[in-house]
Write a protein that binds this DNA or RNA. Sequence first.
DNA 1: ATGCCACACCTTGTGTGA
Length: 252
Amino acid sequence: MNITTFNVNSIRARLDRLLGWLDDRVPDVVCLQELKCTDADVPRAELEKRGYHVATYGQKTYNGVAILSRTPITDVETDLPWAGDSQARGIAGTVAGVRIVNLYVVNGQDTASDKYPYKLEWLQHLRRYLDGRTAEPLLVCGDFNIAPADADVYDPASWKGQVLCTDAEREAFSALLALGLTDSFRKVNPDRRQFTWWDYRSSGFEQNKGVRIDHHLVSATLLPRVLDVTVDMEERGRPQASDHAPVTLHLV
DNA sequence: ATGCCACACCTTGTGTGA
């Protein structure tokens, strides 16, 4: 079983690429972020035609998340991590006995922006939501907008103190792990320098100037099933690609 | 210090992303 997290940066603008990628890779489960459209505007029929069950939590213009699965998705939950959040950033569902929480974490824009304290508040709500849920086979994946360590950044000096890399964000990430979750990529590849997002500007991808911000966190009961985590660099290099690469967790 | 690119918006420039 494989589960991909992919920030598509607009499911409508990316539809041809997304469908081409699905036809090529035939993934079991796909967690999408940044749909940038309402549930009604999600091209559901195109996905279902390919054999996917589709659960969405959309929003106009910004945010929006979805889970696609070749087998049924049960117990779908939206409005994560708390009901008072007005932004569509979290959806959960159970697939083949694995509880999957798909997240589009707040970017934060800049430490001086109001969006930055909102990001930290959002992460606190996420921690509260996940607390007590890590005993089951749980996968928390998505675009975390946090590079957990300097090893996850192409130029740590230039990123120091910048949003995605601040101490407060990294502490919030560690606090999630402390609930009983493991950063599966780093567990499997302790020393590998691999990014998941590259800036569209200034040939970021061509120069491999990226950051690792898309993650698969697994609970202790799921960890023994982890085989590998791979980043689809080929897809990121294609014309009209998202600025994120699809990242796939391979389970036994 | 700014723009560099890409996307949505009932667009013709602005906000946001990371």
